[in-house]
Design a protein around this nucleic acid. Structure first.
Lengths: 148, 148
DNA sequence: ATGCAGATGCAAATCATTTGCATCTGCATG
DNA sequence: CATGCAGATGCAAATGATTTGCATCTGCAT
């Protein structure tokens, strides 16, 4: 920690998170990180830009993209894209292996932390000679509300 | 089959496939469908466009995109996007449940037809109240050649 | 053989994302 | 605490993928 005056160390504190990864703590990055913390599921760069717009500190769309990309590089955030959408979604990196359950109608995203394919990866390594580094599982369906 | 002079019915025949889904058999769609049949894994619209370029029949990029999208609507092709790439990939719909094993270095894509989460879907339905309609699983790693 | 709904080509538009550049600002240093 | 400068920001313009409007062309039902 480069900030001796800052006497806690907590991932849910933007200052701690940014500082610990060697990123300068600017007001833009701070509000951006905090906005990500507030989201329960991945959000697009554009959407987060509009959420910040009009608050005390808003942020330019370029800065938004640049910062999100840096968060991802530093492991503070994760980038993904769901369904057949072309745009990227960003979320806080919880350092918890997780998958998404997505409603094909209302686009609600539920996070699933239980993973059925941990062991399956080993089988794949054996069968295909690949050295597996990760996987992505999305499950689609209708959420309870959209089933009526 | 609307073409009585065409006396077989085979998904690997472009004329049959297009005709059976009510799509006009144009020379552009025919070569496009045949090009898709030749691919062993999903390919981008642009790449397929360049592969056709210079052959007897080439095809405008707009037509390429429009036709691929129609193939997907009619269930002749499937659209996906892999890794964190933003561009869409298209492949022939084999009507076979499949997943992808992707080399993070050389981007080779291997198709896996064995699926570990058939039964897991049922658990999710019970736990989350969703009516599951599908899922997508991608597995990342280094292929044998890239491991050196 | 023929008309016309639907398909194509072209160019311009759109949407998400990135980049160049001039200006600004954290923060390490004295 | 003042200060310099590497790194961050805002703006506008560029890029890359994909889509669309429109005039022209072409399968295919008749």
């Amino acid at each position: 920690m480069k900030r001796p005056e800052h006497n806690h160390h907590d991932e849910s504190c933007a200052i701690c998170a940014l500082d610990s990864m060697g990123l300068r703590v600017t007001k833009q990055r701070k509000v951006l990180y905090e906005a990500l913390l507030d989201e329960e599921s991945p959000i697009s760069a554009e959407k987060i830009y509009y959420e910040l717009k009009g608050r005390e500190v808003d942020i330019n769309l370029s800065t938004d993209y640049r910062s999100l990309e840096q968060f991802v590089e530093k492991g503070l955030a994760v980038k993904t894209s769901l369904l057949d959408e072309t745009k990227a979604l960003f979320g806080i990196n919880t350092h918890e292996h997780q998958h998404h359950l997505i409603c094909t109608k209302c686009k609600e995203i539920v996070i699933i932390t239980d993973c059925p394919i941990e062991t399956y990866g080993l089988e794949v390594e054996k069968d295909y000679g690949y050295r597996i580094s990760g996987h992505k599982l999305e499950i689609y369906g209708l959420c309870p509300k959209c089933q009526d």
